[in-house]
Amino acid sequence: NKEHILAQKEVLTPIEYEHYVKHLFDIGEITKELYIELSS
């Protein structure tokens, strides 16, 4: 869920976080809207 993803932002580097969010989007775990929101 969104809270879990945002928690990852605390422990990952910005680049790792971007890759993580992109991966979730690629596998269909999150919607495009959520992907855009989380990567901003």
Rank of each mutant, 00 (worst) to 15 (best):
N1L: 10
N1V: 05
N1H: 10
N1F: 15
N1G: 05
N1D: 15
N1R: 11
K2D: 04
K2C: 05
E3N: 11
E3A: 15
E3L: 08
E3T: 09
I5A: 04
I5W: 08
I5E: 02
L6H: 06
L6E: 08
A7N: 08
A7L: 07
A7I: 06
A7R: 09
Q8R: 07
Q8Y: 07
Q8S: 07
Q8P: 01
K9A: 07
K9N: 03
K9H: 05
K9M: 07
E10I: 08
E10S: 10
E10K: 09
E10G: 10
V11C: 07
V11Q: 11
L12P: 01
L12M: 15
L12F: 05
L12Q: 04
T13P: 08
T13S: 10
T13D: 12
T13I: 04
P14K: 13
P14F: 09
I15P: 11
E16F: 03
E16I: 04
E16P: 02
Y17G: 00
Y17M: 02
Y17P: 00
E18M: 15
E18F: 12
E18P: 02
E18V: 12
H19N: 15
H19Y: 10
H19W: 12
H19G: 12
Y20L: 11
Y20V: 02
Y20H: 03
Y20K: 02
Y20Q: 02
V21F: 03
V21H: 00
V21G: 00
K22R: 15
K22W: 15
K22D: 07
K22S: 09
K22Q: 11
H23R: 13
H23K: 11
H23S: 11
H23P: 00
H23M: 10
H23A: 12
H23I: 03
L24K: 05
L24G: 01
L24S: 02
L24Y: 02
F25C: 02
F25Q: 03
F25A: 04
F25K: 03
D26Q: 12
D26K: 12
D26R: 12
D26M: 12
D26P: 00
I27K: 11
G28S: 05
G28V: 02
G28D: 04
G28Q: 05
G28H: 07
G28M: 04
E29G: 09
E29R: 10
E29V: 08
E29L: 14
E29H: 13
I30W: 01
I30P: 00
I30M: 04
I30A: 01
I30H: 00
I30E: 00
T31A: 07
T31P: 07
T31K: 04
T31M: 05
T31V: 05
K32S: 11
K32T: 10
K32E: 11
E33R: 06
E33F: 07
E33N: 10
E33Q: 07
E33W: 09
L34C: 06
Y35D: 00
Y35M: 09
I36L: 14
I36V: 14
I36Y: 15
E37Q: 14
E37V: 11
E37H: 09
E37N: 04
E37L: 12
L38D: 00
L38E: 01
L38H: 01
S39L: 15
S39Y: 08
S39I: 04
S39H: 03
S39E: 06
S40E: 12
S40G: 12
